[in-house]
Simulated scan of single mutants.
Amino acid sequence: MHSDVTIIGGGPAGLATALSLDAAGLSVTVLERAPLAALADPAFDGREIALTHHAVSILRGSGAWARIPDIGISLLREARVETGRHNHPLTFDTHGTGVEALGYLVSNHLIRRALYEEVASRPGIVVRAGVATRRVRDDSDGVTVLAEGGDVACRLAIAADGRFSDIRRLRGIGAIIHDFHRAMLVCRMAHESPHHHVATQWFDDGQTVALLPVNGGASSLVLTLPPEQIETLRTMDRDRFNADIMARIGNRLGEMRLVSTRHVYPLRAVYAHRFAARRFALIGDAAVGMHPITAHGFNLGLKGQEILAQEIVAGMARDGDPGSARVLRRFEARHRMATAPLFAATNGIATLYTRDEAPFRQLRRAGLRVADSLAPFKAAVTNMLMDNKKTA
């Protein structure tokens, strides 16, 4: 089998890349280990994705945004950051900007379904599900992706198989892995008091809690604790779980009850040593797997594939080669510039706000109060959260 580009991994980043490259006139093959049913109708996995305006524009341009039901799109009108109990919050909003929201919250499974539906409508994209990829072999004029059910010869292979990418490792690319020794439990909680589309994240002694507003009188709970405590909560009966969560958040939204399945994810950040090799590129979490504290993981994944698509289009215009060394050098340089400072800053923030020693607690409280009084700082962070700028 032959294709211009082969994408290893049919998650959101891989499918978004397939759509971008199909729009550029390239033939694309997507290889995904999960069965077709998991792509066509993915199950709820607890994760709510905070999409920036730029990310929405990418999804809209691909055709996927129109496939997400309106009820599944929740406005994020304000974000609050707190530390401890009854402390001065740091707030971000869009007042005076003429924009309705900082961003939009959409369940990960709805994004995945919308992207797959759009991919399935494109005759230039072939999806092979239930297929394990063994490795990528160099050929004289391209590469061959060795996979179950038939190999694929192509001019460029792209790994989009997650932050612990086997294909990245087999291509000889290492990665920085930052283990925070914490796990994250995510689920939906219905509550009696309205959330007013305000997202709240606070750093309490021994725990980090976030409530993300979703439609239907509910919020997505994101609770970070040591893994053994998270496992206890995951298996706890519902009544005890509801009481435990209300106590943890100080009953700020009134009576709460669990209305979804519970899901647990380890907290590890990953940054690949390189984003490219000969006729090979990394996108999504295979390139940069962010700590979720700044909610930029998927947004950076979308931006990364956009940069790669732009460089491929430029390469095709120059010499008709989507996987040339020049294309990949330019992609890597641009994506590193876009991600390295944010990755370092995010890890620093995560470390500062999850340490419970007295100096760290005092620094957090003082920092939030000072930051909330600095209008230029708040405006800069608000602009970063919204990300209205187009990638050049």
Rank of each mutant, 00 (worst) to 15 (best):
P69M: 03
C154W: 12
A132M: 08
R128E: 08
G174F: 12
T144N: 00
A281G: 11
T97E: 03
V143G: 01
G289E: 09
F180G: 02
E78A: 03
L385V: 08
I71R: 10
T391F: 10
L211V: 01
H53M: 08
G301M: 12
R134K: 02
H181K: 03
H178W: 09
A23E: 15
A218I: 06
R252E: 13
E32C: 02
I312G: 06
L26W: 05
T97D: 09
D387L: 11
D70H: 08
R262W: 06
P12T: 13
R171Y: 02
E306H: 15
A392S: 02
G11I: 04
Q207W: 07
I73S: 09
A345T: 13
M316K: 09
A325Q: 14
V370W: 13
E100W: 00
R122S: 05
M386P: 00
Y116F: 11
L31G: 03
P266C: 05
M386I: 06
R67E: 15
L19E: 09
A210G: 07
R252V: 14
L102C: 00
R238S: 14
G84H: 00
I68D: 00
R80Q: 04
P359W: 08
E255R: 13
R128N: 12
A64W: 05
P292G: 04
A129P: 01
S74E: 07
R240A: 15
I176T: 15
E82A: 09
G367H: 02
L39V: 13
G289M: 13
G142T: 09
E192K: 15
A210L: 01
S57D: 07
R268D: 08
L223A: 07
R278K: 12
E117M: 01
F343A: 06
E192C: 13
E48K: 08
D70M: 11
E306N: 14
I176L: 15
A114S: 05
S140Y: 01
F241I: 07
D244H: 15
Y353V: 15
T339A: 02
G217M: 04
T91A: 00
D179S: 08
L328E: 07
L105T: 01
D166V: 09
A129N: 03
Y116G: 00
A16K: 01
L267A: 04
V186N: 06
E48P: 04
I177M: 08
S27V: 07
I7G: 01
G367C: 05
D70V: 13
A64D: 04
H181M: 03
G162V: 11
T91F: 00
A132S: 11
W202L: 12
L267E: 11
A183C: 12
G84Q: 02
L102K: 01
W202S: 05
T294A: 05
